[in-house]
Amino acid sequence: MKLFYIDLVYPIGHKRQNEFFINILSKIIDTKAYVPKNYYKNIDKYNLIEESPKLKVGRFKARLTSFKITLRAAALSRKEKPKYIFIASYDTIIFALCRIFFFKKSNIMLLQHNNIDETTNRVKRFFFNSYKKKVSHIVFEDFIKDYLITCGIDKNVINVIPHQINKKSTSNDLIHKTMYECVALSNSNDEDFITDIIKSEKSTSFFLDNKIKIIIKSKYQEFDNDYLTVFNGFLKEDFYDQKISQAKSIFMPFPVTFKYRMSGTLVDSLSSNKILIGNNIPLITHYNSKFPNICKNISDVNSLKEFLLILKNNEITEEQQNEFSIFKEEHSDKKIEKIFTNLFKS
């Protein structure tokens, strides 16, 4: 076995991504995975080295299970002695405590999600610093790599792998009539920004008067005047896919703490040929510089309303279609497979 693929946290939102990575890595290198049995539908059973337990519900139980998974994964690495250990997601503190138990000659590759942003916490920064120069890092964007370099990490151990496109979003089965000018369905939505939108609508009735339909997911707020709809609660995958397909644009009102990580919402938006709107966080600024015609950064509720009014009266242009095509090419299976192939040759 040359590569051992493990996920130590199993976020529900990363299910498609893990399936994609295991399948594409299996084409390039001898890959075995330590994942829950029957958790991933599209993974060849021969890739499964051993069934791992599923995480328990609740913060303490989930962390305890993650700790057990990490220790068992470390034991399996010592037994199998892989050249590479690919860790798809992990708990910063648990990994720091358990890293010494992994096979010492393996090249540990950490796929970074929110772990970098968590280093604003002094305790997590201490644990992150304890291993940051002793592993390889995989990030989704160049600007994240640039930040890690400023943290004292050698650029040669940081690899940029594009996030795969959402093929479900590009499927013809999901083409529906446009019903919403904009949707904002991420769990990362900033509640303060949502509050400002609701307050503005109560005082101006902008969305109602201009017949601009927008739907926003909140953690706890609710509002509905038939044009601005804010809801909370569990979001089913089918509902999410349907609303994305019915929208003209996707809005990411993310908090300023969302800095050095990728967003599945962004990928779903551009995979679906939907204009992306976001506030001034590094990810949106980065994509606005790369794709200025399909990614718009806004600063407040008024600039959001101004842009939606413009968007309502315009159709997709040829320039925008070209940028969507470039995005899909840069994030294609072929592109990602080529990068991984070159990575394991070096």
Rank of each mutant, 00 (worst) to 15 (best):
M1W: 04
I6Q: 05
D7I: 10
V9C: 10
G13A: 13
Q17D: 12
F20E: 02
N23C: 11
I28C: 11
I29N: 07
D30R: 06
A33Q: 08
A33V: 08
V35K: 00
Y40G: 01
N42S: 11
L48M: 09
E50G: 07
E50Q: 14
E50S: 12
S52F: 14
P53I: 11
G58H: 10
F60D: 08
A62Q: 11
T65H: 04
K68D: 06
A73S: 15
A73T: 11
E80Y: 10
K83V: 12
K83L: 11
I85T: 05
A88L: 03
A96F: 13
I108Q: 04
M109T: 00
Q112G: 02
H113N: 06
N121Y: 13
N129A: 09
N129G: 02
K132Y: 04
K133L: 05
E141S: 00
K145F: 00
K145D: 00
Y147A: 01
G152W: 06
D154M: 06
H163I: 00
K167P: 06
K168D: 10
T170K: 13
S171P: 09
H176A: 02
E181R: 03
V183D: 00
L185K: 07
N187F: 13
N189T: 03
I194G: 01
T195W: 02
S200D: 12
S203M: 12
N210Q: 08
N210D: 04
K213D: 01
I216M: 04
Y220S: 14
D224H: 10
D224G: 09
G233Q: 10
F234S: 05
E237K: 13
Y240F: 13
I244F: 04
S249C: 09
M252R: 00
P253G: 11
S263H: 07
I275L: 14
I281F: 04
P282G: 04
N288Q: 13
P292F: 07
P292V: 02
N293L: 06
K296I: 15
K296P: 06
F307C: 06
K312L: 03
N313E: 06
Q321H: 12
N322H: 13
S325G: 02
K328H: 08
E330P: 00
D333F: 14
E337I: 12
N342W: 08
